[in-house]
Design a protein around this nucleic acid. Structure first.
Length: 523
RNA sequence: GGCCCAUUCGUCUAUCGGUUAGGACGCAAGAUUUUCAUUCUUGAAAGAGCAGUUCGAUUCUGCUAUGGGCUACCA
């Protein structure tokens, strides 16, 4: 039975790289009909950020990546927050201490700092531990006295030097390091009575019967330490398999992808919006920027993995059946955010008009996007009406059908369709200069009775009537149509003109023409 | 500085010793759309360098270079 986990620490909003790691864990789990576990690694009480755990859960809910076990859904391997597992770890710390595989160290952070400054490449290990203040250099009595007197200490793992440590990685193969380069890492802090990541991670993975550890490459250097811990704890035979994923890099330049890159280049790095509790700064997420969760998932799956053929658009089910760790790439991927935009466009084309219309309506008054714009009130009213007014709702679906092929984000829908709901009040200067001729007012005035005579105002008969009139008059087609569009839309954009007239309706079309004749000045 | 990982078009990537090195994003040109966008077609665009193994290397090995990660009583 495959059991994998995603183990974030609640220190802020989930980074998009973390989302990808979780996605790969999910795909792997489902591929093998296994379980995905969410474990909150909150062993650093200093860095805890309120709201971060809820954020993580909400994000995966939006992305449609469900967990089988976790603090929010329970499970028989719980609790799933490391802070609630405090008592569990102490037992294993004691076991290591008893076996002489770990020891107690009293060196203060300040003392260690001075050592590091004094000695180049200082490392707390076999070569230096005899010079430090710990249970190996102190007598058992002295050690006990210090503890009893309340002196703070840490427990360090005792790494035996000069042994080859082999990590078998599903993505990278065999990685061998000499144990001498691993330091005597802190496993436990008496100050808060919590283990550090390394110990908690191994104990929990073991107790939760995790079979595969799929995580970011930043963990590769500590993997040998983890192997040693499994060995020391006597769990080497059930040690999970490792798979270290390549990192997501900055789109341009060097380094790891950061929030600043997103701000600079205009793409989100968080799945959902996040308000920093300290600074109050608000960052919009993929959801607020108008991305579809399916598109985000599909795009992310391809940053560091591929199905082995040319397939690009894949549903979650397809991703699950095609996924394999062996097809994961080894090198870091520069984040291709422009491709994310393309994926979003693709998913809009595949989404039913009804669903897009609903998203559109909901998005009209999205709190995250509220501004002081004068259109704001109109949007709210429109959204409210559309929820109850069936004909209006149907009209929106129709409009969506007309314009969806041109949108990449849900927000663009309003820009592309506002003229269906609101008559133009101003006319785009450039378009006026280019399309509004001297004869346009008189020609459009003549068009009004033609339109009024059309009994069935749907696109086709209207178009026929207008075309017949233009032909009989011998007017240049382009002049009429472009001026007509300017009058209807206010600028040079939008779908087929008679699709617009059908939806806007005869009365309003005529009104807009009259208005244009009155308002537009010949340049 | 030390340790580890990586290296194919600008970007994401395919190739599991023999290919005209394929696809996609982006870019450019043309076509379509009497608007804008979309769409379609076409195009430019790559094996980091140097040795070796081999009949033959993008593919295997080594070195160099470059990039990345780690090097905390953070995860």
């Amino acid at each position: 039975m495959v059991r994998v986990r995603f183990a974030p620490s609640p220190t802020g909003p989930l980074h998009i790289g973390g989302v990808r790691t979780a996605l790969y864990n999910y795909l792997f789990a489902k591929k093998h009909e296994g379980k995905l576990i969410l474990r909150i690694e909150d062993t650093d009480s200093q860095r805890f950020v309120p709201g971060a755990e809820e954020y993580i859960i909400d994000a995966f809910c939006w992305l449609n990546i469900p967990f089988d076990e976790g603090p929010h859904v329970g499970g028989t391997w719980g609790p799933y927050r490391q802070s609630e597992r405090k008592i569990i770890y102490r037992e294993y710390v004691d076991r290591l201490l008893e076996k002489g595989l770990a020891y107690i160290a009293f060196d203060t952070p300040e003392e260690l700092e001075t050592r590091r400054n004094a000695i180049p490449n200082f490392q707390y290990d076999a070569s230096t531990r005899t010079m430090m203040t710990n249970s190996l250099t102190l007598s058992p009595q002295e050690t006990a006295d210090r503890i009893n007197s309340g002196q703070q200490y840490v427990v360090r793992i005792k790494i035996e030097p000069n042994l080859p440590i082999i990590v078998n990685d599903r993505i990278r193969g065999e990685v061998i390091v000499n144990s001498s380069v691993i330091d005597d890492k802190v496993l436990y802090k008496s100050a808060d009575q919590l283990p550090t990541y390394h110990l908690a991670n191994i104990v929990d993975d073991h107790l939760m019967e995790i079979t595969h550890v799929i995580r970011g490459e930043e963990w590769l250097p500590s993997a040998p330490l983890h192997v040693i811990l499994y060995r020391y704890l006597g769990w080497e035979d059930t040690m999970p398999q490792f798979a270290h994923l390549p990192l997501l890099l900055k789109p341009e330049g060097n380094g790891k992808l950061s929030k600043r890159d997103g701000d600079r280049l205009g793409f989100p790095v968080f799945p959902l919006q996040w308000q920093d509790p300290e600074t109050g700064e608000l960052s919009l997420g993929y959801r607020e920027k108008g991305y579809l969760p399916e598109a985000v998932v599909n795009f992310l799956a391809l940053q560091g993995w591929n199905p082995g053929d040319d397939r690009e658009i894949m549903s979650m089910d397809e991703l699950i059946s095609l996924f394999s760790l062996e097809k994961c790439s080894k090198s870091g991927a520069k984040f291709d955010y422009k491709k994310a935009i393309w994926f979003n466009h693709q998913y809009f084309q595949r989404k039913p008009d009804e669903e897009i219309a609903q998203l559109f309506i909901d998005n009209l008054c999205h709190p995250a996007l509220e501004t002081e714009s004068p259109e704001h009130a109109i949007l709210h009213t429109l959204a409210d009406q559309a929820r109850n007014d069936k004909p209006l709702h149907d009209k929106i679906v129709k409009i969506v059908r007309l314009v969806k092929e041109r949108i990449h984000f849900i927000q663009e829908l309003w820009d592309q369709t506002a003229f269906f709901f609101i008559a133009p009040e101003t006319y785009d200067e450039k378009t006026v200069r280019k399309r509004w001729k001297e004869e346009s007012p008189t020609q459009l005035a003549e068009l009004i009775p033609v339109l009024e005579s059309v009994s069935d105002f749907t696109a086709k008969p209207t178009e026929e009537a207008v075309m017949t009139w233009i032909e009989s008059k011998g007017y240049p087609l382009g002049n009429i149509m472009n001026a007509f569009r300017l009058a209807l839309v206010g600028e040079s954009k939008g779908p087929h003109i008679f699709d617009i007239t059908e939806i806007v309706g005869k009365e309003e079309v005529v009104r807009r023409i009259k208005n244009a004749i009155r308002e537009i000045k010949i340049p």
